Computed example of a mutant assay.
Amino acid sequence: MPEGAGTTAEPEQKLRNRFDRYEVAGAFGDLGTLIPFVIGYIMVTRIDPLGILFTFGIMLICSGLYYKTPIPVQPMKAIGSAAITQVSAVTPGMVWGAGLFTGVFWLAMGLTGMLDSISKFISKPVVRGIVLGLGLSFILQGIRMMQSDLIVALIALAITFMLLTSRRVPAMFVLIIIGVVAALIKNPGLYYELSGIRFDFQLPHFVLGQVTWQDFIKGALVLGIAQVPLTFGNAVIAITAENNRLFPERPVTEKKIAISQGILNLFSPLFGGVPMCHGAGGMAGHVRFGARTGGSLIILGIFLLTVALCFSSSVLLLFNIFPSSVLGVILFFAGLELAVTARDVGREKSDYYTLLVTAGFAAWNMGAGFVAGIVMQELIKRKVFKV
């Protein structure tokens, strides 16, 4: 683990963003989630990469400057999955409409104080179960991605385990090198394809005028509503718990995170971006590979902003550098980082029952996990079940 992680350094030192090699390495710890969704939106839903990467870049920089901890900005997974898999029924306007609905919903939830009441009702085993379930789903998804090139994945996995605590060589740097070399060996024609990358400066377009009321309503009903329980579990409850566990000197509240996500999603659709959230898995990825401040988000934001403004016509070529097998390794370690946090759930047998029921359902569906955990918590509390 890099120097400074888990230490008792002075608060004023921790509140400053850093830009050392660990922050650079940690900046790319969430690529396992980011790249597949961005590629899906571009290739399947036909959304302009300029708008997607521009809005991600701006919001990552803002998140890093404001929070000063690695609170990530990720694609919303339920909306992204539905948009990519239901391509015949989903249009870019519906995606932007879903983003606007999501922004209004979470801004209202945060400003009205409704989240405070809900959060007080949720026990620690339920929170840890949501995080554990998310971690397990990341591990399984990472393994599935690694199977695309198992030999490369196993080499990358072994080297990453050996370098996880290295203070000299951040594991992410080695992973990127392995990924690039593997991609070029597997596809020698990639040399010539990459030579087609060209500087092409463009400014984003204001697309709000292209979103109709029909887009907004369809986007909310088809895409947005299904995202709500996932966002509540992963990107409100879990991210708040993770941030406050890892960075107690810089705590956040569910209310603040909800308002922040509302702002993200009211801004993103204006310039052709996609629905975003502060997912706990992204923080785990950033932290696992070295990030300890918001500097990692600023670095990633500047990178994405540069690609958006100067190389948006070559985005798919650039992303070909990162093989799915290596992205799977990144996702696998982000899952491990999340899953191990469940170790402090408590000492009572009932705590473990609630944890495992929540995690089991959450690994399948985050919303279902949240509901199952609350039900189990209340049944045990009211002594309907005795474990």
Rank of each mutant, 00 (worst) to 15 (best):
T358Y: 05
R343W: 14
L356Q: 12
G346W: 06
F370D: 02
V375A: 01
F332E: 01
F361G: 00
M366C: 11
V375S: 01
T358N: 07
A372H: 02
V357S: 02
T341C: 13
Y352M: 09
L317T: 12
M366L: 14
D344M: 14
A368F: 15
S350M: 14
G360C: 13
G373R: 03
A339N: 02
Y353W: 11
F322L: 08
I374Y: 01
V329A: 03
L316W: 04
V315D: 03
F333H: 03
I374E: 04
L327N: 01
V375R: 01
T358S: 06
Y352E: 09
L356W: 12
F319H: 04
M366P: 09
W364L: 14
F361L: 07
V357H: 04
F332G: 01
F332L: 02
D351T: 10
E348S: 15
W364N: 13
L316Y: 07
V371N: 04
D344R: 14
A359H: 03
L338M: 10
V357L: 05
F333W: 02
V315I: 06
G335T: 05
A372M: 06
R343M: 13
A359G: 00
R343E: 11
L338T: 08
E348V: 15
F361P: 00
F361M: 05
L331R: 06
M366V: 10
L316K: 00
N320D: 15
I321R: 05
F370T: 07
K349G: 15
S325D: 10
V357R: 00
G335Y: 03
P323D: 07
L331P: 02
V371Y: 03
P323Y: 03
L317K: 08
L327C: 02
S350K: 13
I374H: 07
A368C: 13
L331F: 09
D344I: 13
V329Q: 05
F370I: 10
R343Y: 15
A334Y: 00
G360S: 13
F361E: 00
F361C: 03
F332D: 02
F322W: 07
N320S: 14
V371A: 05
F370G: 02
L338I: 11
T358G: 05
G360W: 05
L317Y: 09
L356M: 13
V326Q: 02
L331E: 01
L355S: 07
N365L: 14
L318N: 00
A362F: 05
L356G: 14
F370M: 08
G346V: 10
I321L: 06
N365F: 09
Y353L: 13
A342H: 06
G367M: 02
I374P: 03
L327A: 01
V340N: 10
N365D: 11
T341A: 12
V340W: 12
F333V: 00
L331C: 08
L355G: 07
V345Y: 00
F333T: 01
L355F: 09
L327Q: 06
A368P: 14
V340P: 11
D344A: 13
E337Q: 13
M366D: 07
L317A: 11
T354Y: 09
L336C: 10
A362M: 10
V326N: 02
V340R: 12
F333L: 01
W364Q: 14
T341D: 09
